[in-house]
Design a protein around this nucleic acid. Structure first.
Length: 491
RNA sequence: GGUCGGUUGGCCGAGUGGCUAGGCAGCGGUCUGCAAAACCGUGUACGGCGGUUCGAAUCCGCCACUGACCUCCA
C-alpha cells in the first residue's frame, strides 16, 4: 500500500492525505436513499462516486467496511410538528402498507444499482431495523443534557450544544446567523428554538409507522439513524462519511452534533460530498419535480430524452466528471459519453490481438503511473479516463503498425486496462443485442447479406445498395469487411 | 437576507503561474465500387474590469451572471 491517496475533506475544505484509523482498514459510511420513490439520476451520483472509492480502496489493498443505509422511516415531508413522514404519506396514496412501499422501492433501487454495476455495500442497514439503537442514542443525548422532552417528543437543544461545542463547522454556518434567521419564524411551541431538531417524534393517532419508546409511541427523527447505525457498525469514530452535498446542512451537521453529544467525540475523520446532477443548470431532485428516473433513462421514455441510454453510458458519463463538480445533463453530453465508452471498450478488446515486437516504442509504465496518480488525487476519474484514452491511441497505433510493443509491456497494458476499466471504474461490456435475437432472424439477415455480397461481386451496385439501405432503414448497421460483412441490430 | 461554490473552445468536462487534458461534434485524410464503421490528423478557449508578476485562464480586489443549502414565500 504505497499509495498516498488524497481526499478532499469538507470539514477542512482542503485535500488531505488519507490516513486510516486502523492501518489497512477503512470504515466508510454513506447516506443511502429514502425509499419513497423511484431511483433517479441524482441517486446514481453518490452511489457511483462512493462505489469508485470503495473499489479503489479495495484495489490498493485496504479492507473496507462500507455501510450504506436505507432510510425507511422518519423523513418528514415538511419540518412541521404535525408532519407526516414521506413513506407513510406515499403508503396512504397508494393504499399500501408502508413496509410494502419500502420494499418496492428498495428492490427497484437494488436493481438500478446492479445495472449500474455498483457493488453492494458490506452492510446495508435499514433505519426501521435500528429503532432500539436510536432510542439508546436519544437516551445518551438526554443524559448529556443536550436534549429535552416536550409533549412526548424529544428535541436536540442546538443552542445549548453550541455553547459548549461548535455547531455549523461542516457547513460553515455561524450559530448567531442561524439563530437570527430562524428565531422569529419559530411558531412551533413544542420546540424551544427553531434550530432544534427532533430526535424522537410522538406519533399522531393516524400515523401508522410507530414504535414504543420511553417518551411516546412514535418514530425517530431524521438525523438520528445515521448516527445510530454508523456507531453500531463502524464504531464511535470511523474514517469516512460520504453523501450528497445537499445533505451537509442540516443532516450531517446534526449528525456531528448528535455524535458529540452522545459519545463525547467527533465520529467522522473525513467528510466527503458528491456534487449534484443538474438539469438546465438546476439541481435534479424529486422535490423539484425535475428528476428523470433511472428506468426512464434506460427506456428513453421521457420527453427530455432523445433516446435510451445504457446503464454503462450513465456510469461512464458520471465518471467523466469529477465527483465534486456539478454535472449537467443533456442528450448531447450523454451521446458523447456513449460514443467515447464504445471506443474505450473496443480498444480493450483489441489488446489481446496486438502484434508483439522485441522492444517497445510506447511507454506503458508512464501511462500506468499517470492513471494511479489521477486516482490518488482525490479520485480524479476524469483525468484517469483521459489517460486511458491516451492508451487507446497507443493501442490503435500498435494495431496500425505505427508503434511497437514488447510482450511484457503488452501484458502490463492488458493488466492496466482490465484493472482500471473493469475493476476500478466498474465498467463492463454490454450485450450488443439486448433482448436476444432469434436464430431465425440471424439466418435471414445473413442470407440477405450473402445475396448482397454476390451482387457486389457481380458489381450489381443497385441490388447491393438496395439491400443495405433497406436493412439500414430497419435499424441494422451493416459493416463491410475485406472479404465479407458484419452486422448488428441497433436499438 | 445568510453561508458556501461555480463561470473554460460548438457541447460535455479536467487542470496548472510559463509546457497538448480528454471525450463528442465539426473539418481534412486513410480504407471502400460508393457508403457505413473503424483508424489517423486537426482546434490556442478559459465571464468583465483592475492589480501583483519577467509572465495569469491559473494569485489578489471589485463587478456581473449562475448554482446549492438555510431562511422566507407559496
Amino acid at each position: 500500500m504505497e499509495h498516498k491517496i488524497q481526499l478532499y475533506n469538507t470539514l477542512t475544505r482542503s485535500k488531505e492525505v488519507f490516513e486510516p484509523l486502523v492501518p489497512g482498514k477503512v470504515g466508510l459510511y454513506v447516506c443511502g436513499p429514502t425509499v419513497y420513490g423511484p431511483a433517479h439520476l441524482g441517486h446514481a451520483r453518490p452511489a457511483i462516486t462512493f462505489d469508485l472509492l470503495f473499489r479503489y480502496f479495495q484495489h490498493i489493498g485496504y479492507k473496507v467496511r462500507y455501510v450504506r443505509n436505507i432510510t425507511d422511516v422518519g423523513h418528514l415531508v415538511a419540518d412541521a410538528d404535525d408532519g407526516e413522514d414521506k413513506i407513510a404519506q406515499k403508503a396512504r396514496l397508494e393504499e399500501l402498507e408502508p413496509m410494502e412501499v419500502v420494499q418496492i422501492y428498495t428492490n427497484e433501487f437494488h436493481k438500478a444499482m446492479e445495472m449500474l454495476n455498483v457493488l453492494p455495500p458490506s452492510i446495508e442497514p435499514r433505519a426501521s431495523g435500528h429503532i432500539i439503537e436510536q432510542i439508546e442514542e436519544v437516551r445518551k443525548i438526554l443524559a448529556a443534557g443536550y436534549a429535552y422532552e416536550s409533549q412526548g417528543s424529544v428535541y436536540f437543544d442546538v443552542e445549548k450544544f453550541a455553547k459548549d461545542h461548535s455547531y455549523g463547522k461542516l457547513s460553515g454556518r455561524k450559530i448567531e446567523d442561524l439563530i437570527s434567521n430562524t428565531r422569529d419564524l419559530d411558531g412551533q411551541h413544542e420546540k424551544r428554538s427553531g434550530l432544534d431538531f427532533a430526535l424522537w417524534k410522538k406519533a399522531q393517532p393516524e400515523h401508522i409507522m410507530r414504535w414504543p419508546s420511553p417518551w411516546s409511541d412514535g418514530f425517530p427523527g431524521w438525523h438520528l439513524e445515521c448516527t445510530a447505525m454508523s456507531t453500531k457498525y463502524l464504531g464511535e469514530v470511523f474514517d469516512i462519511h460520504g453523501g450528497g452535498m445537499d445533505l451537509t446542512f442540516p443532516h450531517h451537521e446534526a449528525e456531528i452534533a448528535q455524535a458529540r453529544a452522545a459519545h463525547g467525540k467527533d465520529a467522522v475523520r473525513y467528510w466527503m460530498h458528491n456534487n449534484m446532477i443538474t438539469l438546465n443548470g438546476q439541481k435534479m431532485g424529486k422535490s423539484l419535480g425535475n428528476a428523470i428516473s433511472l428506468s426512464q433513462f434506460l427506456s428513453g421514455d421521457h420527453p427530455l430524452l432523445e433516446q435510451a441510454y445504457s446503464a454503462m453510458t450513465i456510469r461512464f458519463f458520471m465518471l467523466q466528471s469529477h465527483y465534486r463538480s456539478t454535472l449537467d445533463f443533456s442528450n448531447e453530453a450523454l451521446q458523447a459519453a456513449e460514443k467515447g465508452l464504445e471506443r474505450l471498450m473496443k480498444a480493450v478488446e483489441k489488446i489481446d490481438s496486438l502484434p508483439v515486437s522485441a522492444s517497445s516504442t510506447v511507454n506503458v509504465a508512464e501511462l500506468r503511473a499517470n492513471c494511479y496518480a489521477a486516482m490518488d488525487d482525490d479520485l480524479n476519474s476524469p483525468i484517469a479516463i483521459a489517460h486511458l484514452f491516451e492508451g487507446v491511441r497507443m493501442i490503435n497505433a500498435i494495431t496500425d503498425g505505427k508503434e511497437q510493443i514488447s510482450a511484457s509491456d503488452k501484458e502490463e497494458l492488458k493488466q492496466l486496462f482490465c484493472t482500471f476499466v473493469f475493476d476500478i471504474l466498474g465498467l463492463k461490456a454490454e450485450q450488443a443485442a439486448p433482448g436476444g435475437q432469434s436464430e431465425t432472424l440471424k439466418e435471414v439477415v445473413d442470407l440477405l447479406l450473402k445475396l448482397r455480397l454476390e451482387a457486389k461481386q457481380n458489381k450489381d451496385w443497385g441490388t447491393s445498395d438496395r439491400i443495405r439501405n433497406e436493412l439500414t432503414a430497419l435499424g441494422f448497421e451493416i459493416k463491410d469487411t475485406k472479404d465479407g460483412f458484419t452486422w448488428e441490430l441497433k436499438k
